[in-house]
């Protein structure tokens, strides 16, 4: 992880193409969480792996330019707060915490099942960012000498 220049051009070229496909697949899994196997967690892991692919292939310094790490940390905290707020809206408009308060829609259609797709999206963002940031922070520690997280 020390080497900031990344891997060979072959890996870089493949990554440049494949990372978008992986991201697309992750988004697909998250959005269809209420219809097919998968969901927020599984899709979030796929998205995190796309980011980690970039980090491994291009090195840390490039990734730090490509992604705004500070912003990602804020989005991560915001996403989970949003989850709680949505849950509290369940108390306000439904009858209990996390209760459904939207229309259930038509069965097997993409826009259906009330609040569940919203929770899936939030969980997807949260899982993707936290998994990526955990590895990022662990790679950041200089194992030779002390440093602060």
């Amino acid at each position: 992880m020390k080497d900031s220049h990344g891997m060979t051009p072959i890996v870089k070229t493949v990554t440049r193409v494949s990372v978008w496909l992986i991201l697309l697949y992750g988004c697909y899994i998250i959005l269809h969480g209420h219809l097919t196997p998968g969901g927020g967690f599984a899709g979030g892991v796929v998205i995190a792996l796309a980011f980690l692919n970039v980090m491994l292939a291009y090195g840390k310094s490039f990734t730090a330019e490509w992604l705004n790490i500070r912003l990602l940390k804020d989005i991560e905290a915001a996403s989970i707060t949003l989850f709680l707020v949505l849950g509290l809206l369940g108390i306000a408009f439904g009858n209990a915490f996390l209760a459904n308060f939207l229309g259930k829609g038509e069965m097997f259609s993409l826009f259906s099942s009330g609040t569940i797709p919203l929770f899936n999206i939030i969980i997807g963002i949260k899982v993707a960012l936290s998994l990526f940031l955990v590895v990022w922070v662990l790679a950041d520690i200089d194992s030779a000498k002390g440093g602060d997280l």
Partner: peptide, 25 residues
């Protein structure tokens, strides 16, 4: 099981962080 996998992921990440810090010391 999905929940418990997530929990184990968290604990393993924490353990790895502690192991790295112990290696530093």
């Amino acid at each position: 099981v999905l929940t418990s996998i997530v929990i184990e992921l968290g604990i393993t990440a924490l353990l790895v962080a502690l192991a790295i810090r112990l290696y530093q010391k």
